[in-house]
Amino acid sequence: MSNKKLILGIAAGVAALAVTGIILKRKGKLDGLSDKASRFGNDMKDRFNNIKESAKHKFDEVVTKGGDIADNIKQSQQGKTTAATSTGSTSNSGATGSKGTINPATA
C-alpha cells in the first residue's frame, strides 16, 4: 500500500508542476527567462574578470614595492659594510659581531 501512495504523490507533484507551467506560460512570465539568465551570466562573468584584473594589478604593485624595499635594504647594508671597512677599524666596539659582521641592533 505504501507503493501506491508514493506513486500517487509523484503523480500529484507532476500534475501541479504542469498546471503551474501552463499558467506561467499563458501570462507570459516565461518568455524572457532565458534572456534574463543569459544577461545575468554575462554580468557575473564581467564582474569576475574585473575582480581578477584588479587583483593582478594590485599583486604587481605589491611585488614592485617589495622589490624596491629589498633593494633599499640591500643598499643600506652594503653602505654600512663599506663604511665600517673604509674606516680601517678592527676593534670590536659592539657594532660588529664576533666574526666582524655588522649587527643592525647595536649599530
Rank of each mutant, 00 (worst) to 15 (best):
A16E: 02
K56V: 10
I51W: 06
A11R: 11
K45V: 11
G41L: 12
N3L: 14
S91C: 07
A95F: 06
S98N: 10
E61A: 06
A55S: 08
E61W: 01
G21M: 06
A83M: 07
T20Q: 09
R26N: 13
S34W: 09
G94D: 00
I73V: 15
Q78R: 05
F59A: 12
A18I: 13
E61D: 14
L17Q: 13
S98Y: 07
K27D: 00
D46P: 00
F40R: 13
A83C: 02
G28L: 02
K56P: 00
A15Y: 00
N50G: 14
D71W: 02
K74G: 01
F48W: 07
E53V: 11
S38T: 14
L17G: 15
S98D: 13
L8W: 08
S86W: 04
D60A: 12
T106G: 03
K45N: 12
I102M: 01
I7S: 15
D43S: 13
I69P: 00
S34T: 14
A11P: 01
I23H: 06
N103Q: 09
V62M: 06
K99A: 14
L30R: 06
P104I: 02
S54D: 14
A83P: 00
G32K: 15
V19C: 14
A107W: 15
Q75T: 09
V19G: 11
D35P: 00
G9D: 15
A107Y: 14
I23P: 03
T81E: 14
G67S: 07
I102H: 04
M44P: 01
K5W: 09
K5H: 11
K25F: 11
T90Y: 01
F40D: 15
K5P: 05
L8E: 10
L24G: 12
T96K: 12
G28P: 04
T87K: 04
L30K: 07
K52A: 09
V63I: 07
S98Q: 11
K52V: 02
Q75H: 06
K5I: 13
G13M: 07
D46Q: 10
S86A: 06
V63Y: 00
S93H: 06
T20M: 14
I73H: 02
I51G: 05
T82L: 09
S2Y: 08
E53A: 15
G100S: 01
D31A: 10
A105S: 14
K36C: 04
N49F: 10
T20I: 14
I73P: 00
D68W: 03
N72L: 03
F48P: 04
L17Y: 11
M1W: 08
K27P: 00
S38Y: 07
K99S: 14
L17C: 15
E53C: 02
G100P: 00
A16S: 06
G88D: 00
S76L: 11
A70G: 01
N103K: 09
D60G: 02
A95Y: 07
T96Y: 12
K56N: 10
K5Y: 12
K99R: 11
A12Q: 03
K56R: 09
K65R: 08
D46T: 13
